[in-house]
Amino acid sequence: MLKKNELMNRAIQLFSEKGFYQTSVQEIAEATGISKGAFYKYFDTKESLLIEILKLQYENMIKQASSMSQLEGMTRREAFIENMSHELEQWINNRDFFTVLFKNFPPNENKQVSEIMSKLKSSLVNLHRETLIDTYGEKIEPFITDIVIIFEGILKEYIITVILREKSVDVYQLASFIATVMDSIVNSLPYTEPVLTDYLNPANPKERILDCLDMIEDKLNNTNNITTDKEKLLKAVQRLRKEMKTTEPQQFLLEALISYLNNEEILKKEVDVLDRLYKRLVQDE
């Protein structure tokens, strides 16, 4: 495992210096102190090595983002800034890898890369959505699509500027600045109307419940310090997902499964969101 991790780290360095296509398997093997033949004991191809690195980056980013979602002893706004700072640090700390990815693999050029990046985007959208609601309250829900798009647009442009143009930045100062901008936007909402209402629509809790279950499943798969039986928790998530896809979900079963998941301390935030969405679904019906 140590040698495999070293291979991935050396590969990122070489890809960053020379480019993905200009770096050979031989060079990666030599930089790691192994033979070219030994490389293939760990990875089938150079592409499979890149995909493995991307999967690991995805898992780490979601794991870190989820673990930072609840911060004790802070106001909601302070927690918002802290969470944002941490996410920006994740992108910046992995600058070399994402530089290679953005430059060598434009969107839709590689199916596996596109699928993993799409999954990362979807997971972050859900995390951002709930973070924004936690920060500013349910008053922003009618505008949530517009708010998320604006927030992610700001983050994206700063991330691209910092990573691709190699700018240095005080992450906490940047997060505080973005939070101030978001404050101004939220304060202006009473004087305007939402533009987009069909994407991330708060009136469609069933789809959001399924998204939330995906987040819970990802967190379970990427977290080790779980006090409850992980397999049973995963089965509960799978049963919830199956039940939600039926035409007439059984309320008593859904409530029992949600209650069971709520027993796991590490899932409290996600299950709170799940429970809120479920109650909205029942009210709508």
Results as ranks from 00 to 15, higher is better:
Met8Tyr: 00
Leu14Val: 04
Phe15Leu: 02
Phe15Lys: 02
Glu17Trp: 01
Ile28Gly: 01
Ala31Gln: 02
Thr32Ile: 05
Ser35Tyr: 04
Gly37Arg: 11
Thr45Phe: 11
Glu47Pro: 09
Leu49Phe: 05
Ile51Lys: 02
Lys55Glu: 15
Lys55Ala: 08
Gln57Gly: 12
Ile62Trp: 03
Ala65Arg: 07
Ser69Val: 14
Thr75Phe: 09
Glu78Ala: 14
Ala79Tyr: 07
Ile81Tyr: 06
Ser85His: 03
Leu88Gln: 01
Trp91Tyr: 12
Asn93Lys: 06
Phe98Lys: 00
Thr99Phe: 05
Phe102Asn: 12
Asn108Val: 10
Gln112Gly: 09
Val113Ile: 14
Glu115Thr: 13
Lys119Glu: 13
Ser122Lys: 13
Ser122Val: 09
Leu127Asn: 12
Leu127Trp: 07
Thr145Gln: 10
Ile147Tyr: 05
Ile149Val: 10
Ile149Met: 11
Gly153Phe: 00
Lys156Ser: 12
Glu157Val: 06
Val162Pro: 02
Ile163Met: 04
Tyr172Leu: 14
Ala175Gln: 08
Phe177Gln: 14
Asn187Val: 08
Leu189Pro: 06
Pro190Met: 05
Tyr191Ser: 12
Pro194His: 02
Pro194Cys: 03
Pro202Thr: 08
Pro205Phe: 03
Leu210Thr: 03
Asp211Ile: 07
Cys212Ser: 15
Leu213Ala: 03
Ile216Cys: 02
Glu217Ala: 08
Thr228Trp: 13
Leu233Thr: 02
Lys235Val: 08
Lys235Gly: 06
Ala236Cys: 11
Val237Tyr: 04
Gln238Phe: 11
Met244Tyr: 05
Thr246Tyr: 00
Ala256Thr: 03
Ile266His: 13
Lys268Asp: 11
Val271Phe: 00
Val271Pro: 03
Val271Gln: 02
Val273Trp: 08
Leu274Thr: 03
Arg276Tyr: 12
Tyr278Trp: 15
Lys279Gly: 05
Val282Thr: 08
Gln283Val: 12
